[in-house]
């Protein structure tokens, strides 16, 4: 079957002189933001700052790639922030305990990573299974698991902070702070996840099934798509992305607590929507998600680089920029264009 062009994608009118704002909107907003950042403080474009910025956006970015699948297929996952926190916590516990029997070394880190991926896949499957087979709304399922994971990490940490043993931290540190050919490892991981995500969503039958289910579940079912299986798998992909993000998050500070990953779910969903994916499902754009994630991090970064805006207004500035970016992305700029010919009604 083929998926018809999404309703949000209007057929190109005159290609000539009209930019495709649906595709380029987020990127233009990001470029505008960067120019603004440079004007406020030239240190914005220093190599160190750009590296920090991209590295920092990797967590939300990787999670948001997974969220793109969930949202495209018409679901939502609110549990990702708590899931990241509990996976970080369990990883730290597993690694700390493994030292006792196996000694310090790279293998400890590998054990931690295996634990992380297993947990991520399981947690994602749980969300998906309860949504599809349990027939509970995704919002409720993931709201529930959000609370469960958040209290679990608090419980494991005894209300405090779980800290990775210092000797393992030295072995693990390069995963966040190291680089290959000058590119920080988290940025590489983000790029790889994004490319794989793009291929999966745009070049495989699975990706088309996700969009089909998101557009119209009933039609998808009649078209012999295994709706439940495809949808459950989107949550598993989400869980996998969370575990990858966790693997590069833990070496950063070597700790996890109940305040780890707070509100990451909203940031991930915001990144997805800023990027042009429809919140109601049916259409997803990985490229946009990547830009959206970088943009969210950039806003915070720019606010830290200047003192002309009161600290108390940080949230307001973020809000305005997010709304403006989505407004651009929805193609509203073209409607304001004086060159636009009125469409004959």
């Amino acid at each position: 079957m083929t998926v018809q062009a999404h309703e949000g994608v209007k057929p190109a009118r005159k290609k000539f002189m009209t930019l495709d704002f649906h595709t380029l909107g987020p990127l233009l907003a990001l470029i505008a933001l960067c120019i603004f950042g440079f004007l406020l403080n030239p240190a914005f474009v220093s190599e160190g700052n750009i590296t920090n910025l991209l590295t920092r956006s990797a967590f939300i970015g990787i999670i948001a790639v997974g969220a793109t699948f969930v949202i495209t297929a018409g679901g939502i996952d609110l549990s990702v922030g708590s899931m990241a926190a509990v996976i970080s916590g369990v990883m730290i516990i597993v690694m700390n305990n493994a030292i006792g029997t196996m000694g310090v070394g790279v293998h400890i880190v590998l054990i931690g990573c295996v634990a992380s991926i297993a947990l991520g896949l399981a947690a994602g499957f749980l969300n998906g299974f309860m949504t599809t087979k349990g027939k509970i709304e995704a919002f409720i399922v993931t709201l529930g698991t959000m609370g469960i994971y958040r209290s679990l990490v608090t419980y494991f940490a005894d209300g405090g902070t779980l800290s990775l043993a210092f000797d393992v931290r030295d072995v693990y540190r390069p995963v966040y702070y190291g680089n290959i050919l000058g590119i920080p490892i988290p940025v590489l991981a983000f790029a790889v996840v994004a490319i794989l995500g793009w291929v999966l969503l745009n070049r495989t039958a699975y990706g088309r099934y996700c969009m089909a289910i998101g557009s119209n579940e009933t039609v998808a079912r009649y078209s012999a798509i295994k709706v439940d299986r495809v949808r459950t798998l989107t949550y598993v992909i989400q869980g996998f992305c969370v575990s990858i993000a966790t693997i590069i998050y833990v070496p950063r500070l070597g700790s996890a607590s109940s305040s780890t990953g707070v509100l990451w779910e909203l940031e991930a969903i915001a990144a997805v929507i800023i990027g042009g994916t429809m919140l109601k499902g049916g259409y997803g754009r990985i490229g946009g998600t990547v830009v959206g994630a970088i943009m969210l991090t950039t806003i915070g970064n720019i606010l830290n680089l200047t003192d002309i805006i009161s600290n108390y207004l940080n949230g307001a500035v973020q809000g305005v920029i997010i709304i403006a970016a989505v407004w651009l992305q929805r193609g509203n700029l073209t409607t304001l264009s004086p060159f636009r010919r009125k469409r004959a009604s």
């Binding site: 160190g48 920090n52 950063r252 780890t260 830290n304 680089l305 600290n311």
Partner: peptide
């Protein structure tokens, strides 16, 4: 001076930005 919300991650990020600035 910036708010880091008594949080480790925020402390890390705000300080990174102070250092590049």
């Amino acid at each position: 001076h910036k708010h880091a919300n008594w949080n480790r991650d925020d402390g890390f990020e705000v300080m990174q930005d102070f250092l590049s600035r």
